[in-house]
Amino acid sequence: MTCREGIALATEWICTRIILKLDCSTIIAAMGLKGVHRSRLCFILDEITENRSCLPEVKLQAIRWEQNRAAHELAQLAKNTAMWRVSSPCCIDQVIAQECNNSR
């Protein structure tokens, strides 16, 4: 569901290629399949596929959970807080900066 929401927001905000980094190889495999999905996630995967078609290119990239700390922290905050549309919460800025520096 997080991927579905992320792709939906990307279609609202940007018109360029994106890289979707996921730490779940099962979801990456399911999103890479063409045609009809027959898992219990079929409706969510269909929505992701529909939204992906609105973007020029969506590249899927597998990463380790440790490389996805910012996303994890934001997901934890989102359980009790509203969505952030303009900038990230102050408490997450340091995590984002650290992940950006580690990815170079």
Rank of each mutant, 00 (worst) to 15 (best):
K21V: 03
E50N: 13
R38P: 00
C15F: 05
A70T: 10
K34W: 01
D93R: 15
C24S: 09
L45C: 05
L55M: 10
A75M: 10
I14T: 14
S53M: 11
Q76A: 11
I14Y: 05
C90K: 05
I14L: 13
R85S: 13
V36D: 09
A62I: 05
S103Y: 00
R52S: 06
R69C: 12
E5A: 10
K34A: 11
C91L: 13
M1D: 06
I92H: 03
R40D: 08
E99K: 07
L9I: 12
W84E: 15
W65E: 04
N102F: 03
E50I: 09
C91G: 08
E47S: 10
I19Q: 10
A70W: 01
V86N: 10
T16A: 14
C54S: 10
G35D: 10
M83W: 05
E66I: 04
L74C: 14
E73C: 10
A70Y: 01
I48C: 10
P56G: 11
E5V: 12
R85P: 04
T26N: 11
E66D: 06
V58D: 05
C54A: 11
M83D: 11
S39Y: 09
R104M: 09
L20I: 09
H37P: 08
L45Y: 06
C42Y: 04
T26I: 10
E57I: 02
D23N: 03
I27V: 15
R4W: 00
P89H: 02
N80L: 13
T2S: 04
T26W: 04
L9E: 11
A62V: 02
A70K: 03
A97I: 06
Q61F: 10
R104Y: 02
P56E: 12
N80S: 14
C24N: 14
L74N: 07
S88V: 12
W65L: 07
I92R: 06
C3I: 07
A29F: 05
V58K: 11
E73V: 10
L33Y: 00
L41N: 09
L33A: 09
E12A: 04
T49Q: 11
A97G: 07
I19H: 02
H37A: 12
L60H: 05
T11G: 03
C3W: 00
G6F: 00
E99T: 05
S88L: 15
N102S: 12
R69H: 07
L22N: 12
F43G: 01
A8N: 07
P89M: 05
S88M: 13
M31G: 08
A8D: 08
W65A: 05
K21T: 01
I7N: 00
I63Q: 01
T81W: 00
Q61I: 13
A82F: 09
Q98A: 11
L22H: 07
I27E: 12
Q61M: 15
I28G: 02
R85F: 09
I19W: 02
L20P: 00
I63E: 02
C3N: 01
R38W: 09
R64H: 02
C24Q: 06
A30F: 02
V86H: 09
M1K: 05
G6Q: 03
R85V: 13
F43W: 08
I44N: 04
M1Q: 05
S39G: 15
L9F: 09
W84T: 14
Q98R: 10
H37F: 04
S39E: 13
R4P: 00
L9Q: 08
L74H: 04
L77W: 01
R40K: 15
D46E: 14
I96L: 03
I19T: 14
D93Y: 03
C100L: 12
S103D: 03
R40M: 14
H72N: 12
A62D: 03
